[in-house]
Amino acid sequence: MKKISAIIIVLFISVGSYAQNNAIAQLFDQYYEDENFTKVSVSSKMFELFTKIEPGDEDEKEILDAISKLKGLKVLAADSVQDSRKMFNEAVSKVSSNGYEELMEVKDAEEDMKFMIKEDKDVINELVMIVGGKRHFVLISLYGIIDLKNISKLSKSMNIKGMEYLKNVDGKDHK
């Protein structure tokens, strides 16, 4: 029975990832040539390689724990676009028409953001986060088995400001 359920799970994940990539893939494709965007894609092969990384310190160990069950990551980010709100809305409508469930939405003076997930039997196997500010836009898509608790713990213990990420990405992009 273990074998059967393992095969079923693998098949569901593969079937699921075929389907789920479409909306995200479309958005990536759309901005593929646009120099203003930072695009990051980390494959499941790469995630496998991460398991071989020796954690340097406690923080890295926590990160490695959090990503140990992940299978893929995509980031699409820009910090100086004119129509970021429009992009945000477009991305949200594309993603939500793709069978994602909304986990939460936050709107404040600074930015709008939306978390959307795909669940199978109470396990989150995809998370999409879309952030649209006055000038910035970020879309991150994560897949694999996603432990929100683990992920939310990360920034609490490391105390890194969210926007730093964007600045870093931006810095790299302009090197």
């Binding site: 990160i63 998370l127 986060m129 939310s152 990360l154 400001k161 969210g162 990420y165």
Partner: peptide, 9 residues
């Protein structure tokens, strides 16, 4: 990316 998500979460 994870830290970013974490922070926003």
């Amino acid at each position: 990316a994870l830290l970013f998500i974490s922070n926003k979460l």
